[in-house]
Design a protein around this nucleic acid. Sequence first.
RNA 1: GCCAGGGUAGCUCAGUGGUAGAGCACUACAUUCAUAACGUAGCGGCCGAGAGUUCGAUCCUCUCCCCUGGUACCA
Length: 477
Amino acid sequence: MNKFYLTSAIPYVNAAPHIGHAQEFVYADVIRRFQTIQNKDVLYLCGADENGLKIIRAAEEKGLDPKEFTDQNGEKFLQLAEKLQVKFDVWQRGTSPRHHQSSQLLWQKCAHNGDIYKKNYTGLYCVGCEAFYTGDELDEKGECFEHPGRKLEEVTEENYFFRLSKYQEFLTDLITSDKLKITPDFRKNETLSFIRQGLTDFSISRSRTRAKSWGVEVPDDPNQIIYVWFDALNIYQSGIGFGWDEKKYEKYWPADLHVIGKGINRFHSIYWTAILKSAGLKLPKGIYIHGYLTVDGQKMSKTVGNVIDPAVVIDKYGSDSIRYYLLKEIPSYADGDYSERRFREVYNADLANGLGNLVARVAKLCEKSNFSLDVNKKSGIGVFYPEVISLISNYKFNEALLEVWKKISAIDGDINRQTPWKLKGQALSDSLNSYVNGIIRIACNFAPFMPGTAETILAQFTAKPIVAGKSLFPRIS
RNA sequence: GCCAGGGUAGCUCAGUGGUAGAGCACUACAUUCAUAACGUAGCGGCCGAGAGUUCGAUCCUCUCCCCUGGUACCA
């Protein structure tokens, strides 16, 4: 059986999850379910990035120690996934001992290849925040927002650097040839044009003092802590055995697909692959990059107060409804908007009036004429439409759902034309048989997207007798 | 600034060198087998602005305006 190793981006657990996290989890989950139905041995990993200064600062604000703080926040992400019916096969934490061990091994491999060296790093340091800032993170006066009036100091510190510059040509070939396939194409072009501008080495450690001893220690140099990206990305490997279970690692690595948001493309397409290449390890095969969500047309932000808690929406409308909205209404390659108004429109138009109503009318017709499916003639179970296979394979979830939608309309059209409520005998059962098989096939195509709904529909129409039951998606008024 | 992608119906978007399209929303008609659902019909657009090429431009060329993304040691 072919394996399929899938990851979604490791959330930085310095705050509770929002609807953007829900979106990414759902995308990855659709792929996981789709590949599983296609008989792949799928492993889906997600995890928590828990290292880095921002975690320490966020924890301090709450009066918690970092461990306690990340425990609590991580738990919220797990709860969200469960509510969304998203299953992580592995949840790997950046604080776990195995991860530390694994990241040190990765470091040693890169170092062994001569790609890690010491160099001075100079940056603007805010004593109040105990952190470095870049120019665009500061206000007009060049001061940090937390400590207005206080000048930043130029501080120089000796850090370890990774020799990224060495891999410019390699990365260009890798990406151009699609050996690392970046989807969508315009992101691939963006990445290549970034590489073309020239790659420079980047810092991969911080002094122990500055990192407040929080994070993975640099091998053979207890005064330095591995800096966030180098170890965070390695969660993808440390979670499947790199450095502690060679057999498992051999089985699943390399990743078949990393699902990420557009903001971290560079770190995956460029940094991560270069690090792996340097370490002499296999490289991921694909990266799917989705866009960001706005809420009511605005960026989500705590100050605007428009951060959507997906758990609330799920409790109100059900997890399949929000999965559907995220998959159908948000373009799979681009940014999209969430609003409750739009959510209700989509819910009523598609789920209540479309799918829900079709299921109700056919179930009722079956119930009235005491029709049930001949098990030997069942067709369409577990069968994807070819268009759907091709669209999901290209991560065009919204278009895949539109394809399924055409089938729903087609059955509605058949019913209106054939007026089965006027038919009797063989003509009637032939008609019902075709509707029921059609619905079953639709449910199977919906299965990766709305697993609960698909299961309910299958149970309803393979039962003897078929009964009307209660509404799948009651209209919202 | 530079690079890339956009500006088409109230909303989300498709599209072609020759009377502008879809879905949703809205209106009317019709109506239970069905969740006031399905269906039918309709309303609704100087196709960002200006100039050029052409018999003819929403589509090709140029200029301008506006939006979005990227522009590295920020997760």
